[in-house]
Design a binder for these strands. Sequence first.
DNA 1: ATCGCTCTTTTGATCAATCAAATCCGCGAA
DNA 2: TTCGCGGATTTGATTGATCAAAAGAGCGAT
Lengths: 359, 359
Amino acid sequence: MNGEDPSPVVSRPTVSSVALLAGVSRQTVSNALNNPQRLQPDTLKKVLATIEETGYVRSAAARQMRTARSGVLAYRLDPVRDGIGGAVLDTFLHALSAEAERRDYRVMLYTADSDDAELRQFSRLAQAQAVDAFILIETHRDDVRYEWLVEHGIPFSVFGRPWSSDSSGHAHGSSPQPAHAWVDVDGASGTAQATSHLLELGHREIAFLGWPKGSETGDERRRGWAETLAQAGVGEDRRDSLDSGQRDGILEGADAARRLLAAGATAFVCASDSLGIGAFSAIQAEGGKAAVVGFDDTPTAAALGLSSIRQPIEKAVSCALGSVFAQLDGASGASSEPSLLLPQLIVRASSRPATGSPA
Amino acid sequence: MNGEDPSPVVSRPTVSSVALLAGVSRQTVSNALNNPQRLQPDTLKKVLATIEETGYVRSAAARQMRTARSGVLAYRLDPVRDGIGGAVLDTFLHALSAEAERRDYRVMLYTADSDDAELRQFSRLAQAQAVDAFILIETHRDDVRYEWLVEHGIPFSVFGRPWSSDSSGHAHGSSPQPAHAWVDVDGASGTAQATSHLLELGHREIAFLGWPKGSETGDERRRGWAETLAQAGVGEDRRDSLDSGQRDGILEGADAARRLLAAGATAFVCASDSLGIGAFSAIQAEGGKAAVVGFDDTPTAAALGLSSIRQPIEKAVSCALGSVFAQLDGASGASSEPSLLLPQLIVRASSRPATGSPA
DNA sequence: ATCGCTCTTTTGATCAATCAAATCCGCGAA
DNA sequence: TTCGCGGATTTGATTGATCAAAAGAGCGAT
């Protein structure tokens, strides 16, 4: 175990040192990695063998310097939020990192506590060519970030709709503001699926545990429920009495569920798994058999047997990256097709007849 | 708004272009940023002004190439775990990112689903000089990662104890295996603080809601509770009947709490906030006034008024980075003092006499 | 036998910064 | 007046990989 020779400061292998060993020129080594089809099979094999043997890995810096590509995407990491609610973003980040790796890219984090600070980060990171593109989330009204990035010609993609303050508003004289690239999940479709599912199970008194009105995401989820119920002939008055908007949280969900159960609700569509878990446990505690569907399909929901609506995070990530890479590869403009993905209802015990199923 | 001239492919400013503008040499520009004290105040001011004006930012790649430093730390991002439990790691990651930025460093993510895959990542990232050091978490018995990194001379620091399989075991003939750098939080101290606090409030029947035996972290937290109770004169039999070990989770915590309340418990020390929140809500539901202390001080606990034990994450991050930077700055060996940090009990409504406080 | 064509491989130059060593400059001492 | 000295500034060289263009090799057609 000690014969090789410990470590006489063996300098890292380089294209040149590998080339020397393989008896070819440096460019041939470079080609073996970047344009293998240019080499004769024999040569390629020989070079690759030498690379393997020396454990050579291209220097990120040198490569980056010549190609003006860092192979890095930037993502803003926000401070921790309420436990379960943040799980979706955790999932997103993990999927982003994994998918980026698959494409030989990496994700680098940055933080910022204000839009202004974030713009400064944009400029630092992009100017230093430390990152090639940004992945944005947590969109809000009048987001200044898109405009800045577009103006500076920095590729980016957004998870979340632009929620633009004005889609037809004061034309600025400038170009018709081409929509930037974004991906989002159609929350209304999710709650609509859940509501239909509960209707099919025979429920009529389907309540909605949502968040206080005013949040885009929350209101959209409420809309899916409301519209579906309306189509099923449930009037607005009835709906209003089945509509609860409280802070997100397990205990909040349990409280609201108890209240609505007393008011006659037999099923619940929820804006989050936190609320869903709360409702589910309240129902179980009372020995009732009302049905519940949560939102986001967190691991906890899966573990408890709570039906939930799964956002296609992997697909969202893949869309976002697709758009970013299209921008990087020069196909400017045409590539950025916004896409609204459909979530999927995962049915579990919490919304299945407890006793034998009706075939 | 349109007079300047749109963008005639203004190439990014470089040291040379800035130097030209400022009427100095490129090295002087470089010095202005890296060794300002070498320049005459006037020159410095002039150069900095030009830098400001041109918006010049050093190219990360070129810098990295010459200095053999990337200014990047690597951190493994794991798949999402159960909601609230993961909050500590979220906090850790955010703190890590923020603290790294403060020191002009960045955090880059990678993924790996096995130790083997992780070693491959180590070698890729380090060989390419894409990262300068690794920050490890989630230690486990017989972790092969430390050894690999030490052997390859790659700086790293660990959040979590080495939990070495043998601290006195078979000496390998090689050097006395100098402990690597690590930081961790003393979980036993946390539960001990909680238990003492509850004893002071007059409780005697203090139960422990922990995880199944076998996890290092969990067992350690149990130990703090058990030892403190033992010192207070609570016998082993009594303790055993107050010791509950179930899966982590809010509902699990509620169930266990109900069971132990029935058995006479008047207070709860918990291994996590999930368990704590569950217990707290079960107590409230029954109108009781048993006291509860959670663990990890998650935002949810704070919102609910649950007393909890806060891990000094910021300090842990700062220790870990301190160690890593010491390694990077050549001070090899002496720098890596392992440190065991003390958590802090945060007292909230859940463990305070409901009625008027005594003094 | 030579030219021209394609396919493979090699050489020269470059990316943007920093290190190392060489100049420059002013000033007091010989 | 000249030399020496120390601090400020500049020049030369280098880092590792890649692009662009040149050189070499093989082969059929003139």
